[in-house]
Simulated assay, not measured.
Amino acid sequence: MGTSFGPVDAARWIAVPGPADDKYTRGVVGLVTGSARYPGAAVIGVEAALHTGVGMARYHGAGRPTRLVLQRRPEAVTAEGRVQAWVVGSGQDPDDLDELTAAHRDRALADPVPTVIDAGALPFVERVAGTRVLVPHAGELARVLGRDRSEVLAEPAASALDAASRYSAVVLLKGHTTRIADPGGGLLEVSAAPAWTATAGTGDALAGVLGALLATHALELEADPGCAAPLAATATVLHGLAAERAGRGAPFTVLGLCAELPAVVRELLAG
């Protein structure tokens, strides 16, 4: 049984900029997400990161997703430069990825900064040089562990803890109750999302939210990589509360979820 993590806990892990901050000190998150086949994942991840609060989002990908990202968010930066956290793999199939995007992915995985490892990047977890945060659903975690999906669903907490220990990573196992396991055996549990959240694209948004939180807490993570677990739990809380606001008991779109993130941040900070 894990430790329950909720809105009061999450409020402590939201970075608030001060008058001396600029776009670099507020956190720069890099994203290598989406692909020619799944370009929407790139748009959603950038949208979620910017709505969570960062000084800059750098996006690197193929031509089509890059164009779509810039059409939706012209403030996204596509030039090379330093980042404080990466989001890699959302909307990517490792067996069907163009050479440019694969090269960006490999450079990001080799950068020793905290990295959110999603979807198509999960097979490359052992290449990640920085603090590792895996964000699989049950089927993806089953493949990572070499098990059947039914085994992960039967023992989600134990499966997340096993993967955390095996890969020296924080593992955020998505679900109606999300489990966040750390390599030391700690387990946090978050139950904040309505069932309507089970829709395409919400995982891409969660990865973007988490990437933003890692970037805005770069100094804390450098001093204590163990901060990645409560930051992952905070991302889950923000994501779930934004889904509640977007749907209000009904279906909602992923961009609608992203649009509610600033209000959720405001309410958590207000207590």
Rank of each mutant, 00 (worst) to 15 (best):
G203H: 05
G63A: 15
E80H: 05
L257M: 06
A121R: 00
L238N: 05
A129T: 08
T52D: 08
P112E: 02
V77E: 07
A198E: 07
A110K: 12
D93Y: 06
P230I: 09
A212R: 03
T66C: 03
R127T: 10
G30F: 02
T253I: 08
T197C: 01
T101K: 10
A200M: 00
A223W: 04
F252P: 01
H104C: 11
T131D: 06
A157P: 09
R147F: 04
G55R: 10
S90M: 14
Y167N: 02
L172F: 06
A102C: 01
G130H: 06
A108T: 13
P225G: 02
D182W: 12
T177N: 04
A20Y: 08
V190P: 08
P225N: 02
R248L: 11
E260S: 10
A246S: 13
P39C: 10
I14Y: 02
S90I: 00
T52V: 09
E47Y: 11
A142Y: 07
I14L: 15
V254H: 02
R179M: 03
A246F: 07
D111H: 15
A246Q: 09
G45H: 12
S165F: 00
R266H: 07
P156S: 05
R127A: 11
A207M: 10
H137V: 15
V116L: 11
A270M: 02
G211A: 00
L187T: 02
W86N: 00
A205G: 08
A270L: 07
F252Q: 01
A157S: 09
A49S: 00
W86V: 01
R245S: 05
V209G: 04
F5P: 07
T131V: 14
